[in-house]
Write a protein that binds this DNA or RNA. Sequence first.
DNA 1: GGTCTCACG
DNA 2: GACGTACGTGAGACCA
Length: 934
Amino acid sequence: MADGNHLYLVDGSSYIFRAYHRLPPLTNRHGQPAGAVYGYTTMLWKLADSLNKADGPTHMAVILDASEHTFRNEMYDKYKAHRPPPPEDLVPQFPLIRVATRAFSIPCIEEAGLEADDIIACYVHEAKRAGWKVTIVSSDKDLMQLVEDGKVDMLDTMNDRRIDSAYVREKFGVGPTELGDVLALMGDKVDNIPGVAGIGPKTASQLIAEYGSLEAVLANAENITKPKLRQSLIDYADDARLSRKLVELVCDAALPQPIEELALTGIPKEPLQEFLEEQGFKALLNRLTGDGGPTSGRSSSGGGLDLAAASIASTPARPAEPEAISVDRSKYETVTDEESLDRWIAEATALGRVAVDTETDCIDCIIARLAGISLATEPNRACYIPVGHSGADLYSDAPNQLPMALVLEKLKVLMEDSAVLKIGHNFKYDWVMFDKAGIDTDPVDDTMVMSFDLDAGLHGHGLDELAKLHFEHECIPFKQLCGTGKSQITFDKVPLKEATEYAAEDADITLRLWQRLKPRLAADNVARVYDRVDRPLVPVISRMERRGVKVDRDYLAKLSREFSEEIVKLEERIYESACGPFTIGSPQQLGEVLYGRLGLKGDRKGKSGQYSTDVNELERLAGEGIECARLVLDWRQLSKLKSTYTDALQAQINPETGRVHTSFSLAGAQTGRLASNDPNLQNIPIRTEIGRKIRDAFVAEPGNVLMSADYSQIELRLAAHMADVPQLKTAFRDGADIHNMTAEELFGSADRDNRNKAKTVNFAILYGISSWGLAERLGISKEEGKFIIDRYFERFPGIRTYIEQTLQFARENGFTRTLFGRKTHFPNIRAGNPSHRGGAERAAVNAPIQGTSADLIKRAMARMDRALDDAGLEGVKMLLQVHDELVFEVPEGREEEAAAVVREVMSSAAEPALKLDVPLDVEVGWGEHWGAAH
DNA sequence: GGTCTCACG
DNA sequence: GACGTACGTGAGACCA
């Protein structure tokens, strides 16, 4: 369990009462009572400070009582009836508890109808199921029922005491499992649990210890010698049974927030500092900002950073120093007998973690067949298990491999063991391979995603590149084993000795990478985005890729033929107007024809000094009446559509599934967006009518429809929230047309022309504007462009502040963050070259907005399957993501229900982590093909 | 392999 | 005054 998760559940409600009674009546700087809040704050501080220490929390939540009335009142109307009202000067402190918790960026959980104790019990139950350790921060005796040695303990922060079952036994004479029976017998004055009159803690423990259970005590009441005790047990047996039910903790209610979302990493400094200042808690404030921070004196490398991590954020990111390692490939083992396999699995199980890599005969995981699996448990301790190697006639060792079915059967137990963390590099691929074998791998860490969350923008995240970067180690190149080009062989043909060296090395490096990167997640304050946004997405994306989307091949073929005919016609006319044939697809030749042979005016552009023939130039010429330019534009459009879409897409249809399986890259775009490749399904045409036809090729299976749900104007909404622009926020809340509104602010009226201009300006703002760029787009002078930008800043002052602050932060730190903490690095932000620097600045202005949008849709995706399942919509399948759009296959007749669930999940994606000032509107449509779903 | 062009958000 | 010029992608065609 050394590397397992450890959930800390803080019993906030009981803590505050104890803090109130224990601390002097302090007041905050507004003169309001704040003693209990102060005590509470120091307690959270202490807990957060133990983050990443041995046995410290990896996950944490504060649990509060939401309401007075619970199911126990239904059961027993006098429950807690005699409880006196809380002291007058404690009452105003209750809401501050939530404020304090938020300041620490720790999730705060409460649920109507449930007491804090029950919510805690539910989380304990779930965490145990997931193989996590749990510590309940409380000293409440009812909660001691949950203690289970090695799995669940309690922490009494006031007395600095761990509560285990020995402690419970010492105090109550029975273990945690019998404690409920003792509590039922003895009753509780404060909660008004009746118990059995005349029986206190001592007698209760004695009885339970002697008879074993409450029911046994009641059954044997007649035999009890002490007459008074005997009579009480007989008279109050019903009270005892009622009490038993009242002290029973509910552990099967739905969790208000999944446990994975409770990941605790660092504590961002800003909100905490603001809270401490607001309350005037000077001592803590000094600890936060001064040198004597709570973690000073401790090593800042590796783990152990939490509150201090906040101050790390103000130092620019430095590339990590490589760590010298020695890889000894001779230590790797080829597993070809059952006994060795069992030994490796046992070792991984005992350790609770294992690096895994699969080797196959093809890079496309959908059609790939397994060649072997490698495992690593410690540096230099790795093995390769061949299962699909062929060529027995070529290599004498090939027949030695274990049967694939046997290996998979044994590995299934390991891969599905919730107490064993599986570590992979780009695990999505391996996940699919195991999924095809009926193995549901969980839990998973992905070192590629970790590297991306830590260092996006600094370098790539491939295993070989990272090995070189972090360890100065050169991995065996794939080419060396399999060759290239025509003579390339597949991995299942590689001799076992070489295959073992290559495959085991990958697992070995992955494990070492994990050891190096994992502690940095907390130290760099990205564990939250990793744990809550990107990591949960790995299996979600894997499933989407495996499902694929159905494409109508005949329809595409028909389109191809139509485009072909049209292209031929256009070619003839182009040659005619250009006085002779040439390669239209060659920008070079086209440039010569237009600006040489036809003598038109044009600009040379780019490094190569070639004439530009892009769409802007051709549009300009076409506007001047040059027919040839118009024809070339049409030709370009059609040949693009044909080659990239109608032809290429047909070739991408998987013969087995009849569907197209894209690959989504999790570490693709610097901003945190996904990228789609092989084929790219995120750039299917929609903007022109003719291109749109290609969307009609994307269809649903018979009996289903395709449903599309997209966020409306999400980036502008986020800009309104993040830059805090009141007019924009109001407009979005009122459902106004945002471009019309901008047009009115900028130009005084909103006719069609002004609206289009305003739209361009709105986008320009998101992308990091320059007056020249805007002028170019709008076809106006640079001065006019500047005037419009100035006016925009004047009307929406928040935008200018946002841009300035973002750039200042980026210059100081070398990176930006999204609202969910995702980092994007900009090594060029202080470059001497103004062009490079300017590029980095514009990207830095855009990254927090584009990245937050990416975070939001990823959060929605991570929750989607569960939400659909909960609504009984298992038949609804998420297929594609296109940045602000999700595409589903939905059984006919279930469209309305599915739309409601999808809309709800997407529009509430920010919650509960964030409360946005703007609504996230989602537009949903469906039809027999993608084209009809918009 | 680099460059250009263009498809998408 | 020069620097180039909207942010983020992937893919196909051409050309050396």
